[in-house]
Amino acid sequence: MKTRRRSSRRSKSSGLTTFLRVARFGALATIALGLASCAVTPSMTSSRYPTKSDARPHHGVAKAHRMPIHGVDISKWQGKVDWAALRQAGTKFAFIKATEGGDHVDNRFMENWYGAKQAGVPRGAYHFVYWCRPAHEQAAWFRKNVPADPEALPPVLDVEWNGQSVNCPKKVPREQALAMIDTMLREMEAHTGKRPIIYTDITFHKEILEGEFNDYPYWIRSTAAEPHERYSNRRWTFWQFTTTGRVPGVTGDVDRNTFYGTENQWRMFVQSACDPRDYRRLAAHGRCQPLDPIQTASIDE
C-alpha cells in the first residue's frame, strides 16, 4: 500500500512537471511571437489593403497605410493596366495622365480612361504644366483631348518645375506662374464643370503656392514624412505618399495615394466633386454638385 502511494505521488509529480514545462514553453513562444510582430514594419501590420505594398517603404508615411481610401496615379510608364485586378485590390480612385504642355497626349490615356470606367474605378484626368507654353494654349489642348465626362472625378492641374526637361528646364517668376495656373484652373473648370484639384510637390509649393488658391483641393507629394511636416499651412485632400508602390494589376512601381477622410466623406466627394469640408460654402455659389439630404446631414463627421 505505501509503495503504491509513493508511486502515485511520483506519477503526479512527473505529470505536474511536464505540465509546467509545456506551459513555460507556450508562454515563451507567445512572447517570441509578440516580439516578432513588433519587428514588422508598420505598413505591413496596419495596411487596410494587404495585397498592396511598397518596394521601398518609409516609416515616415506609415500613417497613410492606415487611412481608408487609397488610389493610384497612372501614365504610360505603367504599361498595360489590368483595371479589374486594380479595383479588386481595393483601389478607390485613379488619376490618369492625359496631356502635357500644348502638344503632348499620353499615348495610353484613352485606353486607361475607358478601362478604368469599365472596371468601375472612379477616375480623373490630369494635365502636366509646361512653363514655356502659354496657359491658354495648354488649356485648349486639355479641352481638345479630355472628354467632359460628368461621371469623372475633378480634373487635376499638375504644377511642378520641369527641371529635367531638355527644352524647358527654367523656372518662371512667381507672378507669372500664378497667372498661368489661374488661367488653366478656370478653363479646366469651364470644360469639365468641376473645380480642379491642384497637384504639387514640396519645392514648388514653397516657392509659388504657399497661401494661394486656398479654395481649391490640393493633392500633395510627401514620400518621407507626413504632409504637415513638409507643407506650411496647407490643408490637403489627397496625399501621394510613395512612388514605389506595388499594386495588383500594375507591373512594377506605381504612385500610391490616399484621401484625407472617411468612407462617407469619400462618397460625398465623388458625388459633389467638392471637398466635404468646403461643400456648404462652395455649394452656395453653385461650385459643387448637389448632395442628397442624408449625406449633407453627416457632412461634418
Rank of each mutant, 00 (worst) to 15 (best):
M1C: 09
K2A: 12
K2Y: 11
R4Y: 14
S7F: 11
S8H: 13
R9S: 12
K12S: 12
S13I: 15
G15R: 09
L16T: 10
L16E: 13
T17V: 13
F19D: 09
L20C: 12
L20N: 11
A23W: 10
F25S: 12
I31E: 04
L33S: 03
A36S: 10
A39L: 13
T41D: 10
S43I: 10
S46N: 12
S46I: 14
H59R: 13
G60M: 11
G60Y: 06
H65T: 07
P68S: 04
D73W: 05
I74G: 01
I74K: 01
K76V: 13
W77N: 07
Q78M: 10
V81L: 03
V81S: 01
W83H: 08
W83I: 06
A84G: 06
A85S: 09
Q88T: 14
G90E: 10
K92C: 04
A94Y: 06
I96L: 15
T99D: 06
E100F: 10
G102M: 08
N112A: 08
K117P: 02
R123N: 14
H127F: 04
C132G: 15
R133G: 02
P134F: 11
A139H: 00
A140N: 02
A140G: 00
W141T: 03
K144P: 00
V146T: 03
P150H: 08
E151R: 09
E151W: 01
A152I: 04
L153W: 01
L157I: 15
L157R: 07
V159Y: 05
E160Q: 13
E160N: 11
N162L: 11
S165Y: 05
S165W: 08
V166N: 02
C168A: 11
K170I: 09
K171C: 07
V172S: 12
E175D: 15
L185Q: 03
R186S: 10
M188V: 02
E189C: 00
T192W: 00
G193S: 02
R195P: 02
P196T: 04
T203V: 15
F204C: 14
K206V: 07
E207W: 15
I208P: 06
E212G: 07
F213Y: 12
D215N: 13
Y218N: 02
Y218H: 06
W219M: 00
R221G: 00
T223E: 05
P227T: 09
E229V: 08
N233E: 15
N233M: 10
W236L: 06
T242C: 06
T242Q: 03
T243P: 03
V247C: 05
G249C: 06
R256T: 13
R256G: 07
T262F: 04
T262P: 03
N264M: 05
Q265M: 12
Q265G: 02
W266A: 01
M268D: 09
Q271C: 03
D275L: 02
D275K: 00
R277F: 08
L282Q: 13
C288L: 07
P290C: 06
L291V: 06
P293N: 02
I299V: 12
D300C: 02
